[in-house]
């Protein structure tokens, strides 16, 4: 800490007022820490306490301590397990789709092509849009009567959102369309950092393009790709906006949607706090697995 602290010149006004280095450091740090405690740590701990009570924010009744009952009820609820299964499927489809599409696009853009800058900018547009807006216009694109998707694919009146078996894929496709550019952007940064001499050496050795990809490109881009996967997995777990707008199928009720209903429609505040903690633990656990792989990839 002492290394990073800059010592003040003896003739500065702060020194003239008698402010020590420590005081100045505290003046900068304490407001930030106070802000974090008030807006992050306190709500986190308060909601943790609420998760062990039967508190309902919609009533004036006091919160009663009920121990682990909320957690027990949630983990024994068939619908909650269904929500978890749906979310797991969604995360898998969505994130893997984004990685394939995003990395593929990055590979294409990593070559010398005309108007590369313009194409890259255009490809980035989806992730700059509001998720609610994206949900609304994809609802129109998917419309069986006048939607352009069925028209181009020649699918007649195929029901993307009304068919319970297809609706989750339809929601995931929207997420893939929206967030593949994010993976593409990070992958592009990784690809451009791969030393050119490695490719030249591989060419001299007459290595096949497949061999070059798996032995040079992928290992060197893997750490940054893993970061993209971590971000997208965490985000996919929290998906709400476009899934809520696009479909009301039980097969597309992700955990964020169920959590919203529980907390703000049913006002089961204690129960929803417990639910949020279960989700938090799961996301932290999955992220940790990824981080472990990330560290392994970096070590290589």
């Amino acid at each position: 800490m002492a290394d990073v602290m800059t010592r003040l010149e003896p003739d500065t006004r702060a020194v003239a007022r008698g402010l020590s280095d420590m005081t100045i450091r505290n003046l900068f740090i304490i407001p930030t820490i106070a802000f974090l405690i008030i807006f992050n740590v306190f709500p986190l701990l308060y909601s943790l306490w609420q998760s062990f009570t039967d508190f309902r924010a919609s009533t004036t009744a006091p919160a009663n301590w009920i121990g682990l009952a909320n957690y027990r009820d949630l983990l024994g609820d068939e619908f909650i397990w269904r929500n978890f299964t749906i979310t797991a499927k969604y995360v898998l489809i969505s994130v893997s789709g984004q990685v394939v599409v995003g990395f593929g696009l990055a590979m294409l853009l990593n070559r010398a092509i005309p108007m590369k800058g313009l194409i890259t900018t255009l490809l980035l547009l989806p992730m700059m849009l509001s998720m609610a807006v994206v949900g609304l216009f994809w609802k129109l694109l998917y419309d069986p009567s006048f939607g352009i998707i069925n028209y181009f694919l020649g699918l007649g009146k195929f029901e993307w959102l009304a068919d319970p078996q297809v609706a989750l894929f339809a929601v995931a496709i929207v997420d893939i369309w929206m967030w593949s550019p994010f993976v593409m952007l990070l992958s592009l940064a990784g690809l451009s950092a791969v030393p050119k001499h490695l490719y030249e050496a591989a060419e001299i050795d007459r290595a096949s393009s497949l061999y070059t990809f798996f032995r040079i490109t992928l290992p060197l881009v893997a750490p940054i790709l893993m970061i993209a996967i971590i971000f997208r997995t965490m985000e996919a777990f929290k998906t709400f906006d476009h899934a809520y707008i696009l479909s009301s199928q039980p097969t597309t009720e992700l955990i964020a949607i169920r959590l919203y209903k529980m907390a703000f429609l049913e006002w089961q505040t204690g129960m929803s706090s417990a639910f949020a903690y279960i989700v938090l633990i799961m996301v932290v656990a999955i992220t940790n697995i990824y981080v472990k792989y990330l560290n392994r990839a970096k070590a290589r």
């Binding site: 009533t59 619908f79 319970p164 009301s248 039980p250 097969t251 209903k261 429609l265 049913e266 006002w267």
Partner: peptide, 21 residues
Amino acid sequence: VPEFAELLTSANQRLYPYVVG
């Protein structure tokens, strides 16, 4: 009743899969 929203959620969970699905 105060818990009407929970009753609604159950109704949606049970009726929708039958009617639409």
